[in-house]
């Protein structure tokens, strides 16, 4: 069989996981909409929503990993993250998307689109940092 393939993805991406929005409303992870993130961030005293545009997607250092380079916010801060190919990001107006949607669906039963260069993902920053 294949070598151990640890699933390092957090449990809340599993279909059916219950997510609490900032106003207390409960939703399943697969039912979340862009507005849920925007509205939750609006009433959060600590978090601010930001848009992160996918600029590059490259192979990561381990077989199931990818390096994704984002341009974040109006200042276009360059941020690079290494995640497993099945890690889902929430794309504005589109929903969950990952570099390998088939694997995300297989592992977590979470319907995903293919994450592509140019997609604009929901991200968060801390309001209080100056």
């Amino acid at each position: 069989s294949s070598p151990s393939s640890p699933v390092a993805l957090p449990p809340f991406f599993m279909r059916g996981s219950i997510i609490q929005l900032a106003d207390g409303e409960l939703k399943r992870v697969e039912d979340l909409k862009t507005e849920d993130f925007i509205q939750s961030a609006e009433i959060s005293s600590e978090l601010k929503i930001d848009s992160s545009t996918v600029e590059r997607i490259d192979c990561g250092q381990s077989p199931n990993a990818v390096l994704i380079q984002f341009s974040v916010g109006e200042l276009k801060a360059q941020v690079c993250v290494e995640v497993l190919v099945e890690y889902p990001f929430f794309v504005f107006g589109q929903g969950w998307s990952s570099c390998c949607p088939d694997r995300t669906t297989q592992l977590f039963e979470l319907s995903c689109a293919k994450l592509c260069v140019g997609d604009v993902c929901v991200s968060l920053t801390l309001r209080s940092l100056r």
């Binding site: 609490q20 979340l32 992160s52 929901v122 968060l124 920053t125």
Partner: peptide, 25 residues
Amino acid sequence: NVEPRSVPVFPWHSLVPFLAPTQSD
């Protein structure tokens, strides 16, 4: 007696990676 199983509830912000430190506004 059967105790009700608690269902984990995750905060919305868990789903979003903190991608960047806020730069000065």
